[in-house]
Design a protein around this nucleic acid. Sequence first.
DNA 1: GGATATTCAAACGT
DNA 2: CACGTTTGAATATC
Length: 658
Amino acid sequence: MEDGAEALDKSVIYNVKPMRSLVPVFSSPPNHSSSPNAHPFLSVSPAGPFPTGVVPFYPFAGAAEINQARTNSFSSPAQAAVPLSSFRTPTSRGDYSGQANGDVEGSQSSGKKKNKPRKKAKGDGRGAANFADIDTDSIVEGIVLSSTLMPINTLLSADGNEESARYVRLVFDVLRRRISQLEDSKDATGSGVRRPDLRAGSVLLGKGIRTNSTKRIGAVPGVNVGDMFYFRMEMCLVGLHAPSMAGIDYMTIKINKEEEPVAVSVVSSGGYEDDTDDPDFLIYSGQGGNVQMGKDVTDQKLVRGNLALEKSLHRGNEIRVIRGVKDPANPLTKVYFYDGLYTIQESWADKGKSGCTVYKYKFVRIPGQPEAFATWKSILQWRSGTVQRGGVILPDLTSGAEKIPVCLVNEVDNEKGPSYFTYIQALNYSVPVGALQPPSACDCKSGCAAGEAQCSCAGKNGGYVPYIINGVLVDRRALIYECSTSCICSATCRNRASQGGLKLRLEVFRTKDRGWGLRSWEAIRGGTFICEYAGEAITARTGLTDDYIFDSTRTYQPLEVSLGVPGNETRLPFPLVVDAKNRGNVARFINHSCAANLFWQAIVRYTGNAPSLHIGLFAVSHIPPLTELTLDYGIVQTDNAPRKTCLCGSPKCRGYFF
DNA sequence: GGATATTCAAACGT
DNA sequence: CACGTTTGAATATC
């Protein structure tokens, strides 16, 4: 288009093989918890000293006492092993939300305080009725029983670890997404505020599906600097920050018979006039004094959280800091980054704008921790153009084929870029005649998510639109039917999440010693559609082990946590192999990992008049910006198939792939 | 132990 | 869309 003299197709660029077998980049090293500073409390702990990073504080109750409080069937430590057959798995009907569960609960627990319903005393029932008909017990049961991550009889202990924290976060989000989906499918007549996050959090707390439930100073096992959250409840469930709203979390410690509150974590997210400019410092405002319903601004008092911060200043203990920011990609929501440990350097009393007293605390970040909030700030600068992203080789390797540019960066060595390939946005593959039911053609006028109970596309997906808002998939299914050209609904219908090319800002980057990889500048929620695997469909030969191959006939691990409904297997009813060597999209740069943060999902929709199949890639869990995106490329079943040695480095590494 | 006060939510309406 | 309103739920404290 611009200078036509060049015979070179602009979409053709350099190409070097992605090294799929190499170690993925994690947002933070796993050994972060070995604090550079000695823990100030170790010397005074009655049971100390402990190894660095271990903070076994039980100020009020022993672990046993806390465990005893759990009476639910799923985490009860009473039975050494619970045979799976003693549980009834959900039936294959599309609607599995209304089933009774008395047999399961009854056989495992005495029935006292089954689900801790948290009765609302209010008589109107308006808000409470929002979720009244959603059987969260059955949903959670399906999730727990189908999980491959933790044995169901493993106690989610008061002191967590990497696995339990991951488990809790995954369960929370899939439950929350399912509740959202069920809410979305109802008539949109109810105007009450819906809070699937609170509902999911409350249900899981009631069932003991939480971890690190004892408060502690310093690092929280299984939660790493740079971890990302979308709801306060998520942080509560993993023991990072307990209060559901308050910004300061604190605990009382007993020293020489003196009880004293100390702060353990704070959330800074714009509720007060904090100074958050410098990623190494934080000026944090004390709590209270704000305008509330029918109350004026008042002086803050040195009580509760403020008192705890003051005591922490004098004790010098580490305090976890969570930085909440507005997500520019979705300005209505917030993202929370766990930014690691800080100490308070000084405090003072200020006069706020209204003339009332506001306490201020200067937090200083302990050096040597991985970047978290600092990374986010850098990306904001790249996006606004105030700072240029370093190492850019090509500003857009799609050459405009995507609406959003994908830059090619190398901050590591002298490689100039991958070898030639042609950028295409989508896979072009028609479903074999008779292999599947054809997709539907709905006539929804107002979007297919809410209130369109008659949507025939939703009917194809078991009665529900498979996506909630923002292109977030509720759960993996064998196949998803999207709305498309033959539907009445608009292009913004949420049942078209995989269409229209990239929606996230991505970059292809040079890894340190691992070839090229793909990652995002954006905060990605679990379940989000990332991209499809584009390329040339080759159905004739399967079992290929070349690079740039996606092979649906390989064996894939199930998701660690899912809703547990039948039909979420990955096998397709016909063989599809995609070769992205000569033609492809960003997906061809995605490296393999046995602990991948993406999964694939088959999607059917019309392209013109032909039902076409697409391979969508979705986020397994929240993915912080600049974390490498990885996919499990599966296993070839035949015994003598050539295999590639895997060095993904995860504890679950199989040692090979393909 | 139950009830209450406190609180840097999250959604939605204007 | 910035701001106000509404409905919240965990926890500490009374």
